[in-house]
Simulated scan of single mutants.
Amino acid sequence: MNLSHATAPEAALPTIVRVGRFYITRELGRGAIGAVYLGHDPVIDRPVAIKTFSSSLSAAEKKQYESQFINEARAAGRLSHPNIVTIYDASSEGGTTYIVMEYLQGQELSKLLEQGKRFPPDEVASIIWKLADALDYAHKNDVVHRDIKPANIFMVADSQPKVVDFGIARSPNRVSEKPGYGDQPYTLSDNNLLGTPNYMSPEQATGRAVDSRTDIYSLGAVMYELLVGRKPFCAQSGSETLLEMIAYKAPPAPHEITPEIPMALSQIVMRAMSKRPEKRYQ
Rank of each mutant, 00 (worst) to 15 (best):
L3F: 08
A6R: 09
E10V: 14
T15L: 09
R18K: 15
V19I: 12
F22G: 11
E27H: 03
G34K: 00
G34F: 01
Y37P: 04
D45L: 10
P47D: 04
S54V: 04
A60P: 02
Q64E: 13
E66C: 06
S67M: 08
R74L: 14
R78M: 15
R78C: 14
H81W: 12
I87R: 10
S92A: 14
G94R: 09
G95R: 06
G106L: 10
Q107C: 11
E108C: 12
S110V: 05
K111V: 12
Q115I: 06
R118K: 08
P120N: 10
E123H: 03
I128C: 00
K130E: 09
A132V: 01
A138P: 08
K140S: 06
N141E: 08
N141H: 15
D142T: 05
I148R: 05
P150S: 14
P150W: 12
I153W: 07
V163P: 00
I168W: 04
P172V: 13
N173E: 15
R174N: 14
E177S: 13
G182C: 06
Q184F: 09
P185G: 01
T187P: 06
L193N: 06
L193E: 03
M200R: 07
Q204G: 08
T206Q: 15
D211K: 02
R213I: 12
Y217Q: 10
Y217A: 00
Y217D: 00
S218A: 15
G220S: 07
L227M: 07
V228G: 03
G229W: 00
R230V: 10
A235G: 06
Q236Y: 07
E244S: 08
A250I: 08
A253K: 11
P259I: 06
M263F: 08
M263V: 13
M263G: 03
S266C: 08
S266Q: 00
Q267N: 07
I268V: 13
V269M: 07
E278D: 12
K279R: 00
Y281G: 00
